[in-house]
Nucleic acid binder design. Structure first.
Lengths: 259, 259
DNA sequence: TAGTGGTCTAGACCACGCG
DNA sequence: GCGTGGTCTAGACCACTAT
């Protein structure tokens, strides 16, 4: 049997199906609150197997576009859009996705031995060399965020060689073959220190929205650790989650329901 | 062919495999940075098909426990990180998961026509009746968060009938058969208003960490809209994301703690 | 009872990483 | 070249929802 593993033009089938369904939903062909056709019908319509349709629908589900429930057809949710991996990964990608013009100015680059906390975050031995880059990031020229990025030596050397006007260090690293596949983010509040006050032109002690991020490659090797501090009112993080998306072996037994 | 759809004791196979692999990783059997056995080997070991093994591994992947990459075996990333849907959904569940004692005091319950924004969030017609509950939430008796929850009439009526000392409104609703399956979260900053100042005992204009959340049932019908405002230093939200999925969680950070 | 999504199987071929 | 994960198929049974 023929199964040429993707359409003739090189697209993967499940992605193609997902893309077409996504467009149909956004275009209003499937309005929020209405039901999607059954998997079997979609499989026939797109000329793929049911498994491939399910793969496509899983993508839409994890994006929060549709729900699913055994026994009934899938329901179309509104147009909620969680931030994609690349938008969460890089200030530049995020800014572009909202139609803004990102910018940045490097304030300082330091090359020094890692402190214990830093070594831990990057999975290095105490005292291993790290590169610390302090940058102020702008939207349409206005400072909105201070970024403190820490790189292990092998990555830092690439960063150090970038042209000073490079807007996206992340994209430049990707172009150099560095892979970013997983990231852990922590979001909370922080108080402006002297650097923040100077670079963001805000009052001392100003409360800022802080995002700390640790990014790894497919091998689990840390490639970047960063602490970003945003002025109030400049950013909001959005996330979608569902019972099905993050289900794990957490079975709550019978009906011991409490109030 | 045999395919009894789950083990004899009623467990789903892919969950069982996922759970065993998770425990093995946490127990250190598969150390961080090492490789997992090939899918085929795992399939043989657990007596399931390769598809089921892949399903299990997809769960672990979306929890950030392992990565994957074509051509090489999966890499173990590290300990447990992701939090369950219910921990994210409810302050009570979250507090318990970190070993804290959650509490709450209802400040006011209002029943009135929805304003345009509220109607939009709950998918109701302008002026439809909604229930607004204002509560202060505590950890070990200390106020840490002000919660403004908005319910459509059919849900609000259930909430209104709850005993005044009900700690978890969410759990009570679940016990009444209300289904929570999807949530969209927005995290940013807000400034304390008069209610916040009064209930949290903080200075006027204090910057707070704000989480707004819209929760829907499997049909996509909104069941709750909530705006929660946390004192600085009391909470941190965590997100894990990868090219495949992202999971949001929240963590406790001791008051006044530094980063 | 019919329809639908959830689970599972047993194959197959493809694309990538590495020795 | 070979091992590995990624994609895809065709079919099956099960669990749940709605009629």
């Amino acid at each position: 049997m023929r199964q040429e593993q993707g359409t003739p033009d090189g697209e993967l089938r499940y992605r193609k199906v997902a893309a077409e369904l996504r467009e149909a939903i956004i275009a209003g062909e499937y309005a929020a609150g209405t039901k999607l056709p059954p998997e079997g019908t979609l499989a026939e319509r797109y000329g793929v197997s049911r498994g491939t349709v399910r793969h496509a629908l899983a993508v839409l589900r994890s994006d929060g576009l549709v729900t699913s429930r055994r026994g009934t057809r899938r329901t179309v949710l509104g147009g909620p859009r969680a931030q994609s991996f690349s938008e969460l990964l890089s200030f530049t990608n995020w800014a572009r996705s909202i139609g803004e013009t990102p910018g940045g100015r490097v304030d300082s680059v330091v090359r020094r031995p890692a402190e214990p906390f830093e070594a831990g975050q990057l999975g290095l031995a105490d005292g291993a060399e790290v590169h610390l880059v302090l940058r102020v990031r702008t939207l349409s020229g206005e400072p909105v965020m201070v970024e403190r990025s820490l790189y292990p030596a092998r990555i830092g050397e690439l960063v150090a060689e970038l042209p000073p006007d490079t807007v996206s260090h992340t994209e430049a690293l990707v172009a150099h073959g560095v892979l970013f596949t997983d990231a852990d983010h922590t979001i909370d509040l922080a108080w402006a220190d002297a650097d923040d006050v100077r670079l963001l032109d805000c009052p001392p002690g100003q409360v800022l929205l802080r995002e700390r991020r640790r990014t790894t490659d497919p091998e689990g090797a840390p490639v970047e650790w960063s602490e970003d501090r945003y002025l109030p009112g400049t950013i909001a993080f959005t996330v979608h989650n569902s019972v099905a998306a993050s289900t794990l072996g957490r079975h709550h037994s019978p009906r011991g329901g409490k109030g």
